[in-house]
């Protein structure tokens, strides 16, 4: 056994995280909602809920439905808009010692550029995550379905920010690899894999779709094999760090993503089930490193490929 604690830190572009576990956008609000029961300063990073240029009131309810080992959501990017997020949400979260990653959602290249400029200038944000894969708004997946549009968008944002740039891709495509390659070639420093899977459910008693938006994004343990496969495929095609997410409930799940090629992981739906999940996963990963005499978590990234 090594006597020193394993090095849990990871590098995403120019951003160094103290450990590889972050929250998944949309599942952790603006961080402070969970501050009473989660020690935010233990986390690798907090990824905030998607921010749009203008305020959005979101989709009509019901917005959530449970499915086998998973859940559907169609919130519709409800958020108070970038000005209010910077003025009212980020200062409180910034009072905690944890890097903030902003998730950006636009309807055009110009909107993403505007969001990137505002969020870079505000000074609270450590990295940007481009949400080009929201299944619950019209045009939400437009960019993530085309390598050309993905490349064009990432290149445009790249020109206006020096912050580490992460592109969050959709699994709702025939082949995720060309999207990943396009994002990286256009200057993305890292990739988030994956957003939710497009799905739906029907309430037989009411003879209506369960969710007001009709279609919704599937998350939770049910999608983990799909997410893991995406990480595996993309790892073989690009050189940048990957952030794996999709149904991670515990450190065993997180280890699978890391071994498939993820440098970091994000915990989403698991926080609803167990608010302590992300912190417990950090502990579990560290314990695994100790038990296996690893000097750091980095040596596990992609090991299942060799």
């Amino acid at each position: 056994m090594t006597s020193e604690r394993p090095d849990m830190s990871v590098q995403l572009g120019s951003l160094r995280l103290r450990n590889p576990v972050m929250t998944a956008s949309g599942t952790f609000g603006f961080g402070v909602e969970y501050a009473e029961c989660v020690d935010l300063e233990r986390l690798g990073a907090v990824v905030i809920k998607a921010v749009t240029v203008e305020p959005r009131i979101g989709n009509r309810p019901p917005r959530i439905a449970e499915t086998a080992a998973g859940m559907l959501n169609a919130i519709g990017l409800q958020n108070p808009g970038v000005d209010a997020v910077i003025a009212e949400k980020l200062p409180e979260l910034a009072s905690y010692d944890v890097p903030i990653i902003a998730n950006l959602a636009g309807e055009s290249v110009a909107e993403y550029v505007q969001l990137a400029e505002r969020l870079t200038a505000c000074g609270y944000v450590a990295a940007l995550e481009l949400n080009i894969s929201c299944p619950n708004v019209s045009h939400g997946m437009m960019f993530s379905s085309s390598p050309e549009l993905t490349g064009e968008l990432v290149a445009a944002v790249r020109r206006v920010t020096d912050l580490p740039l992460i592109t969050k891709l959709s699994p709702n495509v025939t082949d995720i690899v060309p999207m990943a390659v396009a994002a990286v070639e256009a200057g993305s420093d890292a990739l988030s894999l994956i957003n939710t899977l497009l799905g739906m459910s029907i309430d037989v008693a009411r003879r209506r779709p369960m969710v007001g938006n009709i279609t919704a994004g599937l998350s939770g343990p049910a999608i983990k094999p799909v997410a893991l496969r995406c990480v595996w495929q993309v790892y073989e095609a690009v050189q940048v760090p990957l952030i794996g997410m999709g149904g991670i409930m515990d450190s065993h799940d997180a280890l699978q993503f890391i071994m498939a090629g993820a440098s970091a992981v994000a915990v989403g739906t698991a926080s609803f089930v167990n608010p302590a999940a992300s912190v417990e996963i950090i502990g579990g990963l560290e314990q695994y490193c100790c038990d296996h005499d690893l000097c750091g978590i980095g040596s596990l990234v992609g090991v299942a490929h060799s």
């Binding site: 609000g29 603006f30 969970y34 009473e36 809920k49 917005r63 959501n73």
Partner: peptide, 8 residues
């Protein structure tokens, strides 16, 4: 806890 906005 007010984070996910599902119960709107």
């Amino acid at each position: 806890v007010g984070a996910c906005l599902s119960c709107a």
